[in-house]
């Protein structure tokens, strides 16, 4: 399926992007469809909104999720409300904004943040966070084709670490549907992006240590999220752990825990818990302690089982 209305742009996108995500696209599709913009995140997102409203399919890149904040007004007051405020006369659903997020080991305050929860607080946006290369392709194509504006956060740690066979043909993974990354019966772990791998590692460790069986759910889409899949899992296991890199307070884990506590209240065997970043700016030298690690998740699993 080819859509000649797709345009790809952002800071340094022309030469392939600082993470090489748009490599070769300018040569293939031309400078009028794949181009550098001046450095202005509000400009990039506002431009995407207008282009989408006029019928194009913009795929914009924000160089780092840490630098998405100047565009907040364009997301919150414009992209998210374009359809609603016009009674569906206008929409900017063609747009997708990609942004690399999360820890990389040496990023400090401004190359490590996970700002997804800000965007889950904005009715009208869809928020997608893939957990690996295969997932990224299917979810990105689905996001581009989706009739609503999508904020698409890519775990930049995986640009270097992930190795996976990715099908060359067209395929999509539906926005809004979680994935069962690992089946299990004792504890449900919900994660997205880079933290799915951490949850899977922790699940493997506790399985090996003493036969605790964890179910790992890769949420994939945070807004609107697949509550039914999480609810079904927690109804089975009775235990819930949510893992995210962003600071714990008002992180998206809070939403999941609140919703599941209500719906699974009588089936819970232990209080739902969150293993998250702490409530500090992202601290360079403290990163190994700040970002949820396998041992931290393993500890949380044991506590949940022992409760």
């Amino acid at each position: 399926m080819h859509n000649s209305g797709v345009i790809v742009f952002g800071e340094d996108v022309g030469f392939g992007g600082v993470f090489r995500c748009t490599l070769g696209l300018q040569e293939k599709f031309g400078r009028h469809r794949v181009f550098n913009t001046p450095i202005s995140e509000q400009g990039i997102v506002g431009f995407a909104i207008g282009a989408a409203a006029q019928g194009l399919t913009p795929v914009a890149e924000i160089q780092f999720a840490d630098y998405i904040h100047p565009a907040f007004d364009q997301f919150v007051n414009e992209a998210a409300k374009y359809r609603y405020r016009s009674g569906n006369s206008f929409n900017c659903g063609g747009m997708t904004v990609r942004a690399p997020y999360g820890a990389v080991g040496h990023g400090g305050h401004y190359h490590s943040q996970s700002p997804e929860a800000f965007y889950t607080h904005v009715p009208g946006l869809r928020v997608v966070v893939p957990s690996g290369p295969r997932e990224a392709k299917g979810l990105l194509l689905a996001s581009i084709q989706h009739p609503d504006p999508v904020v698409f956060f890519e775990a930049k740690m995986m640009y270097r670490t992930a190795v996976e066979e990715v099908p060359t043909g067209d395929y999509t993974i539906p926005v809004g549907q979680a994935r069962l990354a690992r089946e299990g019966g004792d504890v449900t772990i919900v994660a997205w992006g880079q933290m799915v791998a951490v949850a899977e590692q922790a699940a493997a460790v506790v399985q090996e240590q003493g036969g605790v069986s964890c179910e790992v759910i890769d949420l994939r889409t945070l807004l609107p999220w697949d509550r039914a899949t999480v609810e079904a899992s927690v109804s089975k296991t009775g235990r819930l752990i949510v893992v995210h890199e962003a600071p714990i307070t008002s992180g998206f884990g809070a939403e999941i825990v609140a919703a599941i506590s209500k719906r699974c209240f009588l089936r819970l065997e232990s209080p739902p818990v969150r293993v998250c970043g702490y409530d500090t700016p992202f601290p360079l030298i403290y990163e190994p302690l700040y970002v949820p690690s396998t041992p931290r998740v393993v500890d949380a699993i044991h506590e949940a089982v022992k409760f």
Binding site: E11, D12, G14, F15, V18, N36, P38, I39
Partner: peptide, 11 residues
């Protein structure tokens, strides 16, 4: 330059 972007594409 701004990373790879020449000033001619900046303004």
């Amino acid at each position: 330059y701004a990373i790879s972007t020449p000033a001619t594409e900046q303004y």
